[in-house]
């Protein structure tokens, strides 16, 4: 197995004028809190030894991805680790634009649900490793899981496990599995669903939503087959550095990179 990965999730939302994208964090995908510049933050994460970075444009007003591509271009001049980019990708030319700007993988969410052929088409053109399907879900009162699209706004008829299996069949290389209910709430991962999804497919699963303590990371890695954990709020606002969190995880017996 590869080492387990820790991935800061950099969410981007436009400033008041709509001229630039700022780094933000969210709660349950709604409350948006601005935290600064994505490029500076990416450099901090690199210095701290993050394993990868995920950039997601969460602003539905942004339809021209050029503004996102510009940021990725700046980031890739100085960041030498894998970069996943998404949020508003609709077609192959969006894939191409972002890949040419320096992205290594592209994440798709809503478009994958409405046009699943894009998964196969992009995997064939750019390789499966390039196609990350992002799955956002919520749990209803009866304990049923539902996939949501449009940045958590629209409930779909899909169950996250079945949808992940379908994505794998269509040629996706990785699944980013995010719990909307726990987003920014610091109450830990939903390891029930993380386990069900990660044991149902062979492609790697990145779990996200709710991490705020070392034990949340450790529980996720110990009790499920996930390969990576992504977090936004945790890495952006915590004083605890990667070194400290890694040492906790390593000492719990989990194979993780110790940055040296």
């Amino acid at each position: 197995m590869s080492k387990k990965r820790l991935i800061p999730k950099l969410l981007l939302h436009s400033n008041a004028k709509g001229t630039n994208l700022n780094l933000v964090i969210t709660k349950k995908y709604t409350d948006i809190i601005e935290v600064g510049s994505p490029v500076s933050m990416a450099k901090i994460y690199q210095a701290q030894g993050a394993d990868e970075l995920i950039f997601t444009n969460i602003d539905t007003k942004i339809t021209d991805l050029k503004i996102l591509a510009d940021i990725i271009e700046k980031v890739s001049e100085e960041i030498f680790m894998p970069i996943t980019v998404g949020g508003g990708v609709k077609n192959i030319s969006d894939f191409r634009l972002l890949l040419n700007s320096g992205a290594d993988k592209i994440s798709i969410n809503t478009i994958a649900l409405t046009n699943p052929e894009l998964i196969s088409e992009s995997a064939e053109l750019f390789g499966a490793q390039c196609v990350v399907v992002s799955i956002d879900y919520k749990v209803d009162e009866d304990g049923n899981y539902w996939v949501y699209s449009n940045g958590g706004q629209t409930q779909t008829k899909f169950n996250p496990i079945e949808w992940a299996i379908e994505c794998e069949k269509l040629g996706a290389g990785e699944i980013l599995l995010s719990n909307i209910d726990n987003d920014g709430m610091r109450n830990g991962l939903n390891n029930e669903i993380n386990k069900l999804v990660s044991t149902s497919i062979k492609i790697p699963v990145i779990a996200s939503g709710g991490c705020s303590l070392p034990s949340h990371f450790i529980d996720g890695f110990k009790n499920t087959e996930i390969e990576a954990i992504a977090a936004g709020t945790f890495f952006a606002l915590k004083d605890q550095s990667f070194q400290q969190i890694r040492s906790h995880i390593k000492n719990a017996g989990i194979d993780i990179r110790i940055y040296s």
């Binding site: 590869s2 080492k3 490793q129 290389g173 044991t199 492609i203 790697p204 990576a228």
Partner: peptide, 12 residues
Amino acid sequence: DNLKVPNIGWNE
């Protein structure tokens, strides 16, 4: 069991 393919990640 469960050897993930593609292998994506850091290896010693």
